[in-house]
């Protein structure tokens, strides 16, 4: 059974990879918190609700040959709005970035537990004990 055929699982795995990419962009901001001229970046959030609701209504591109290029899941990066910047042009607010990182981590916890619950549900439907 291909779990990614189930819309919710597909949305969850896309969200997990988005959260992972966002984490690395936020870590990049923090590493560059004292770099002159550096402006904090963020990752644009795709429409996850639409991913669940609209699944099945559009057909993905079919791969007819193993050599076909598979679209890789990269997300668009955008610069964060600058609220204040240091005299050297650096516009990274450490507090802001820490807040975003902790939000990101709790979103990740939420998404992984959602995945576990959904998997338990599928197992239950298959007549297995959800814990086993």
């Amino acid at each position: 059974m291909d779990l990614s055929q189930i819309p919710l699982f597909d949305a969850i795995s896309k969200r997990l990879s988005w959260l992972g990419e966002r984490q690395s962009v936020l870590a990049q901001n923090i590493a560059n918190a004292d770099t002159p001229g550096y402006v904090a970046m963020d990752v644009k959030e795709p429409n996850f609700a639409g991913l669940v609701a609209g699944a099945g209504t559009h057909l993905p591109l079919l791969r007819t040959d193993p050599a076909d290029i598979v679209p890789v899941g990269h997300f668009e990066q955008v610069a964060q709005p600058v609220t204040e910047s240091a005299p050297n042009g650096n516009a990274v607010q450490l507090e802001d970035q820490m807040m975003k990182i902790s939000n990101n981590a709790s979103d990740h916890a939420l998404t992984t537990s959602l995945y576990k619950k959904q998997l338990a549900l599928v197992k239950m439907a298959l007549g297995q004990s959800p814990t086993g």
Partner: peptide, 10 residues
């Protein structure tokens, strides 16, 4: 993997 990249950047 993105999360390991994040560790390297940090």
């Amino acid at each position: 993997m993105d999360l390991e990249q994040s560790l390297q950047i940090s």
